[in-house]
Amino acid sequence: MNDRGKIIAGLAIFIAIVTLPFWFNMGKAAPVPDPKLTAKAKAAKECVESTAYMRAEHMQLLDVWRDTVVRDAKRVYVTEKGKEYMMSLSNTCLDCHSNKTEFCDRCHDYASARPYCWDCHIDNPKGEN
């Protein structure tokens, strides 16, 4: 009994699968996403909260906003510094970040995050661009 041929074929397939990412990316550069700020966002200097907080927790913030608005009908968000904002994706977030494809999508696509915000919201409520 000698199945060495079959075993080697199986091993070759296994190694091809394990090293798949190396083959898939061969000769390709993987540019790091570079989200662009609009002029308005740049001028505002800071978002609703600090940049570090927004980078890590923006989805939580939006989730809380949605629940607070829809369930409690409260529309005013008070930041840690005491500033007040309307809790609205379309009117507050997208007011500055009106460039979804160059801002939101850059990182989301890279990390394969597909938020369901846009199932309901249109990404350009003011009809700009």
């Binding site: 798949l20 990412p21 898939f24 990316n25 390709k28 993987a30 696509d109 890279y110 394969s112």
Partner: peptide
């Protein structure tokens, strides 16, 4: 986890 190793996903 291949989403971290393939671009585009």
């Amino acid at each position: 986890h291949l989403r971290f190793f393939l671009e585009p996903v």
